[in-house]
Design a protein around this nucleic acid. Structure first.
Lengths: 184, 184
DNA sequence: CAAGATATGTCAACATGACTGACATAAATT
DNA sequence: AATTTATGTCAGTCATGTTGACATATCTTG
């Protein structure tokens, strides 16, 4: 009654009207498996944090900002924009809330006094730690039965999935092409 | 000048005021590496499709709907809601557009005439194939230098990241706990 | 020093894709 | 006949993204 029709048959006959007018689908080559596993894995991975964030009146945008500010103390606003790939205006709203509510503080740059360097407060650190704890628990569980070679393959795969043209400061740190390292 | 302060030092002194009033951060146990790799990998993975979708005047929501309708022909509206974890109203808007523009067709259920079974048209299939092609290219590139054991570990890891309580019909198909299989 | 470039902040208007709550219809179940 | 289920839709709201314009402070350059 509530079954999906999972048959391997082609789409409904009515949907075949224009068949042949589009490029060959090369369906056999598609990595449907990885595509769908990434969708579900990421959905549940971020879902962990979403529940907690509600209690704070925050959303995913706040989490992303807090995370990178905590991890890379002294991050500039411009660097954050590169990492998150959003506009100044979008970041502004979220950042203002985090500043107002005391999760982040700004410090004027030493060399360049135009810069506002961002740091997590103790309150901000606690939030990041809580959320990272939930996500780490899920990751640890998922890695439990995988040997070191397997874990290395996972790490290599995820790295290779990331665009390397024009890497931002955080990516340089992650890939070790910069000389500096993230916190912890 | 445009450098992040990547120092390992603690957060800015002003941020330490309330230290000790929050749970111990257990920072050493955190899988910062995987957390951040997942963020960047998924960002760039979905970014592939985003560009193409703009040309069609569609967004990510349309992609997700098209993908699962193509992959699981005859999917019901209710099943789609389970998979995407959005509300009927949210899905309604996107689905209506895809129906109106001829990417998807509905067919009244045989056993239960209340159901509207969903199928991709040839036009819809072409769109899904195009987007899956881009994502498959990225995945294939990322897997190029990884041996079969490594690929197995990646698959196992992604599966283990997914919540298994109350799995929807699509997840049952992916995990093989249902008897039916997806298309292709 | 004056001029221009840069880093940041902010205003207004708008789009997308989520949400809640309420209600309608047709069809199946009890 | 009454109830439940599957779907569709209306109205309003919210979070988070967008563009374009403009202001201010500060650094760099001619």
């Amino acid at each position: 009654m509530t079954d999906i029709n999972f048959s391997r048959s082609a789409a409904h006959p009515d949907s075949q009207g224009a068949a042949g007018t589009y490029p060959a689908p090369r369906a056999g080559e598609m990595r449907w498996d990885i595509i769908e596993l990434l969708f579900f894995a990421y959905r549940d991975f971020v879902g962990d944090a979403d529940q907690e964030l509600e209690a704070f009146g925050f959303g995913r945008a706040h989490h992303r900002v807090m995370h990178f500010v905590y991890r890379y103390p002294g991050l500039k606003v411009a660097d954050l924009l590169d990492v998150l790939r959003i506009t100044k205006q979008s970041l502004g709203r979220v950042l203002k809330q985090l500043l107002d509510e005391g999760y982040i503080i700004q410090k004027t740059g030493n060399n360049d006094r135009r810069q506002r360097l961002l740091y997590a407060t103790a309150k901000g650190e606690a939030l990041v730690a809580k959320l990272a704890g939930l996500q780490t628990d899920r990751i640890t569980r998922a890695l439990r039965d995988i040997n070191p070679e397997g874990v290395a393959a996972i790490s290599q795969f995820l790295r290779a999935m990331i665009d390397r043209d024009d890497p931002d400061k955080v990516l340089e740190a992650i890939f070790g092409t910069g000389s500096k390292k993230p916190r912890e």
